[in-house]
Lab assay of single mutants.
Amino acid sequence: MTEYKLVVVGAGGVGKSALTIQLIQNHFVDEYDPTIEDSYRKQVVIDGETCLLDILDTAGQEEYSAMRDQYMRTGEGFLCVFAINNTKSFEDIHHYREQIKRVKDSEDVPMVLVGNKCDLPSRTVDTKQAQDLARSYGIPFIETSAKTRQGVDDAFYTLVREIRKHKEKMSKDGKKKKKKSKTKCVIM
């Protein structure tokens, strides 16, 4: 069974824990209790493949930012979460993405942009803004509501699919490099 290491990042209060708990335990946590770091595991079937999701729910508070490099190193894919009623959390996505790329030393890291709290009427981040940002990053965008469960499975499952595509691409690139290195030079 394939294991996928997913990391949920975003500013404090955007609903990272609520999304994760909704996926794992099928219930909505409405009281806000700032996370330092929590880890969850769940076995699911995605596109006919049974897999184990190892999900790291991270601290959004700035005082825990020193811990970010460590979990970013171990993560295979990242859910970059903002709240649709919090423009600052949307603007912060850029910083999370840049930090992930720096730590992973790669421009090509599996990510999904997630606009959470889409059940709320007080939207300050337009869907088109988020779609445009995701398009500019070359990553999928999904709106979710941890409260109603809308888009929750889709967000995590899409990230797994992005990781699969990335692994497939990397193995193809690896095979191309191996083929090239088999060419021999004969000096007579």
Rank of each mutant, 00 (worst) to 15 (best):
D57G: 00
K16T: 06
V29W: 14
G48C: 04
F28W: 12
G13S: 11
E3G: 07
H27E: 15
T2E: 14
I55K: 01
L52Q: 14
I24D: 05
V29L: 11
G60P: 08
L56F: 08
D47E: 09
A18D: 06
G12R: 07
L23M: 14
G10M: 00
C51N: 11
T20S: 14
D57S: 01
G10C: 05
Q25M: 11
K42C: 09
G10E: 01
H27M: 15
I36C: 06
I55G: 03
L53V: 13
N26S: 14
T2F: 10
I46H: 11
Q25A: 15
V29A: 10
S39N: 06
V7T: 14
Y64W: 11
T20I: 09
E37W: 03
G13C: 11
I21C: 08
T35L: 01
T58M: 07
G10S: 04
Y40R: 00
Q22Y: 04
L53E: 06
R41W: 04
E31T: 07
D38P: 00
L23Y: 11
E31W: 05
Q25F: 06
S39L: 13
D38M: 00
Q25L: 09
L52M: 15
Q43V: 09
T2W: 06
G12A: 10
D47L: 04
V9G: 04
D47R: 07
E3M: 08
L23Q: 15
A18Q: 09
I55E: 00
G13I: 10
S39V: 15
A59L: 02
Y4R: 15
D33Q: 06
I55F: 07
Y4V: 13
Q22T: 08
Q61S: 14
D30A: 12
I55C: 09
V44T: 11
G10D: 01
Y4P: 15
S39K: 06
L56P: 01
V8C: 06
V7S: 08
G15D: 01
I55P: 01
D47P: 07
T50P: 14
G13V: 10
D57R: 00
L56M: 14
L19E: 14
L53I: 15
I46E: 12
Y64G: 15
A11W: 06
V29K: 03
R41Q: 05
A59I: 02
I55W: 04
T35N: 01
T2P: 12
T50I: 10
N26E: 12
G60N: 04
V9A: 07
S39G: 09
Y64M: 12
V7I: 14
L53R: 03
E62I: 08
G15Q: 00
A59K: 04
V45F: 09
Y64H: 15
K42A: 09
I46M: 11
T2H: 11
H27N: 14
D30S: 12
E3K: 08
E31S: 07
D47Q: 08
L52W: 15
V7W: 12
C51R: 09
T58I: 07
A11Q: 08
A11K: 06
I36H: 05
Q25D: 14
I36V: 11
D30K: 12
I36K: 02
P34H: 04
D54I: 02
L56Q: 13
T35P: 01
L53W: 07
G15K: 00
K5P: 12
K16C: 05
K16L: 01
A18K: 06
D47N: 12
D57E: 02
Y64C: 14
L23W: 11
S39Q: 07
T35D: 02
N26Y: 07
K42V: 10
Y4L: 12
G60Q: 03
E37M: 04
T50Y: 07
Q25S: 15
T50V: 11
V45I: 11
Q25C: 11
I24C: 08
Q43D: 12
V44I: 15
G12L: 06
Q61N: 13
E63C: 08
V9H: 05
